[in-house]
Every structure is written in C-alpha cells, then in structure tokens.
Simulated scan of single mutants.
Amino acid sequence: MKSSRIESLNLAREGIAPNRELYGLYVTLLNKPGVIQNLLKKLTKNRVRLVCINTPSMEFTRPHMTVFLVGDFTKAYVGIDDFIQKLRQDRTIVSIERASEITKGVIIDTKHFPLTIHDMRVIMMGEIVLRPLVTTIRDKMKFLVDVVLWHTGYAIGIELTKLFKDTYGISKPCDYFAVLAARTIELGWGYVEEVKLNQIARTVKFSIQDLWECSFSKPSEKPQSHIYRGILAGMASVVFKTDMIAEEKMCIAKGDNKCLFIVRPK
C-alpha cells in the first residue's frame, strides 16, 4: 500500500474574525439525502460566506444530525434573524439554535461533546500539550520512560487488533495493518506512506513521515519511537499468533527523512 498526501486538514470547530459580522448556528436536520446540500445552497443564495462547518459522520440508524456552522454575514443579502426565519420554513430542518460568541469575533462549537470515533471517546491534544508532556517525562524518568512507553504501545496494539476486528469485521493480516495505517493518518499521528506485508515470512514494513513522538525528540543519536513501535509489535503478535518485535531502522529524530519500521518474529 502506498499513498500520497495532499494538504493539512484544519479540525478547529470555530470561526475567528473580529472585524466581520460572524454568527454561529446549530442546525438539526433530518438524516436523509440532500439535506446538507440544501443547507449550503441557502447560504450561497443569501450570500452568506461559510467560515466553518462541522458535520457528523452519517449514521443511518439516527433520525437526526446536528450541524455546526459559522457564517460571515458582513455582505449577506439578509440579517441573521431573517436568515433563521427562512431556514425554519424548510421541513427538513428540525431545530435551529444560535451559538454564542466566546469573545469578540470568536465563535467556538461548545455543544458537541464528547468527541468520538464510532463509539470510542477521543481526546484531542495539540502539539503545545504533547511536546512538553513527552519531553518532561523523558527528562524526569530518563531511560525508564522508553520501557514504559513501549509496553504501553504494546498493550494498545493488542486492544486495537480487537477493536479493528469488532468494528470493521476484518480477519486478514494485511487488513489489520491497512486500517492501522489509515487510522494513523486519520488521527494525525503521522503520515504512513507505505506498508508492505510478507505473510509467509511474517514481516511488515511501515514507512511513516512526521511521526509525532519522534518529531518531539529532535535531535537524537538513536531512534525515538517507543509507543508506535510497541503498537506494531503488539498488533503483529496477535495477528501472526507469535511473539513479534518492531525495529525502527530510520528515524526523523536522527535526521532521517522518515521513520522506517521493520516488524518481524522475535
């Protein structure tokens, strides 16, 4: 599996423009085809510039879905109150609620909570949190931290294997690592550019750009991935039903252009 990246995806659920006429809305819609397109058409027709929109993943079993959006009404044909009245005339719209300004020109989605991927809660931590967390632990715990992080990753790898099987109904070894690669990108851990699996030899090659735990450990004389290396070993041990290890042959912390992992029998 090889993939190519395009551009960054801004996950911020907010609109920021102190000198513009911004308004935020929570619009609850019937979960049926065409409702999102219809809402966007109404924004365009009234010359409301879309600043931010957050739509949940479609789940067919739910009758409704709530969309958070921030619109710039500075040059709109209608004011916010008239626009809301127009939306209320649409039978596919169940309810509308205004989002409050946090401070001047700043509107943030504070209604959608908790964040989830399917039924699993997700806690987002930016680099401003993760970097001092990792560097402080490394500084205080020294060499012990590498062992702790690896065992943590190994346990995560085992749990992820169970999760992938239950969620996606997969059973082939190649599918487990394909999903792991996709989820690594989806969650912003790193960009997996290549995965090669040899089922006969029971080896896996993982090539990753910008792996977060290594990017926080520059410069270094040795590879710095312990969590992800543990995840690969834990998952591979379950998938191949034997003790596996993951070695980091290249690492961005050392100055390499990517992190390269080789997973093999112990």
Rank of each mutant, 00 (worst) to 15 (best):
Y77Q: 10
K75N: 14
R91K: 01
E97M: 03
G79N: 11
I93G: 12
Y77L: 15
R91E: 02
L87H: 12
F68H: 09
Y77A: 13
Y77F: 13
S95P: 01
A99M: 03
L69A: 07
V67K: 04
V94W: 00
S95M: 01
Q85W: 08
A76D: 06
K86C: 07
V78R: 14
V78Q: 13
V67T: 05
Y77S: 12
I84T: 09
P63D: 05
I80A: 11
V94T: 01
T66K: 12
H64N: 09
T74Y: 03
L69R: 09
S95W: 04
D81F: 02
Y77T: 14
P63T: 02
T92E: 14
P63W: 05
I96Q: 02
G79I: 00
R98S: 14
S95V: 03
D72Y: 02
D90N: 09
K75F: 13
T92D: 15
V78C: 15
K86R: 14
I93E: 06
V70H: 06
D82R: 13
L87K: 08
A99V: 13
V78L: 15
R91Q: 02
A99C: 12
L69Q: 12
A99S: 15
A99H: 06
P63S: 05
Q89P: 00
T66D: 01
R88G: 01
R88P: 01
D82N: 15
V78M: 15
V70S: 02
I80S: 13
K86T: 12
T66A: 07
H64R: 11
I80T: 12
E97L: 01
M65W: 00
I93W: 03
D81M: 10
H64V: 06
F68D: 04
